[in-house]
Amino acid sequence: MSNPSLLITASPHLAAGDSTPKIMWTVVASLAPIVAVATYFFGPSAPLVMAAATAGAVVTERAFDRRGTLHDGSAVITGILLGLTLPAGLPLWMAFTGGAFGIGIGKLVFGGLGQNVFNPALLGRAFLQAAFPVAMTTWPVPAAGGWWSLRGDIFALPFASPRALETVTGATPLGRMKFDLQATPLLDLVLGTTSGSLGETSGLLILLCGGYLALRNYLNWRIPASIFAAVAIVATGLHALDPARYPGAAFMLFSGGLMLGAMYMATDLVTSPVTNPGCWIFGAAIGLLVVVIRIWGGLAEGVMYSILIVNAFVPLLNRWTQPRLFGSAGRTVRS
């Protein structure tokens, strides 16, 4: 009898078959259609901007992470997601800086994958929004100009201001709604033929891609569900009060970055609660804040800030929504 060389591992000796890199790379793959559509709408600027953001994220991860966790794909996700939230005409050096900041401050200082508090992609975007407010709010119109034309001075030198190019820019649907009380046809919103950041315009596609991940259980469906529910309920209620001033639920859901935020940003495994009740509250709080900021705040769009703010509360949510221990009246509270 041939004796095998025996492997000794701890139980359980079976695994469900998912692995962290597999989850991460599946998320990357699910983003491919969204990237493709962004490229279709915004021309070659789109992949360039996204590549720059990704390069910023990946280079920083490679340079500073001691454990060499580049291959797990999380930095690539951060980069692509950040890229999808940027305007098509953003100078590449800014996109790169955003990626580097997101990974560096949003993730590595906490000790790398799994330990961060804030969504790195959104932190990078918030940084860019605060650092370069003008460049970050110049929205090229998707259909305008030839496909090959650049949508802004994306090749501006580092630290240099972008020059104003002859690009058609326009207000985002939310901006138009907020400042001019002008609605945008729902079909445009759903298809994505409106001004806005690279990846947030095509609501329907994001819904499909995110839905696929939810089916694979790579994202907690409760989070987008509760975000959508909260936004829809509050928006419908307000719309009923004053239809002219407050837009309806469909507009709220499909405009701005809500779809991308709900499907891909809020559901970031690391920065969302681990408990299911926590996820419900998390999503509802995000949805509520989005409506509050959009309607009563000074900004037209509030998805990014809402998610970042609620991210900060995740440790508390986790703490407050500990599961009820089997066979006990109390919760498994950490004391």
């Binding site: 940084f127 605060a130 650092a131 370069f132 407010p133 501006a156 201001s161 972008p162």
Partner: peptide, 17 residues
Amino acid sequence: LFGPGFEPWVIMVLPPG
């Protein structure tokens, strides 16, 4: 210092900065 071509990092003069 750098002339008008410089893009200021507004965040640095804001609270988070």
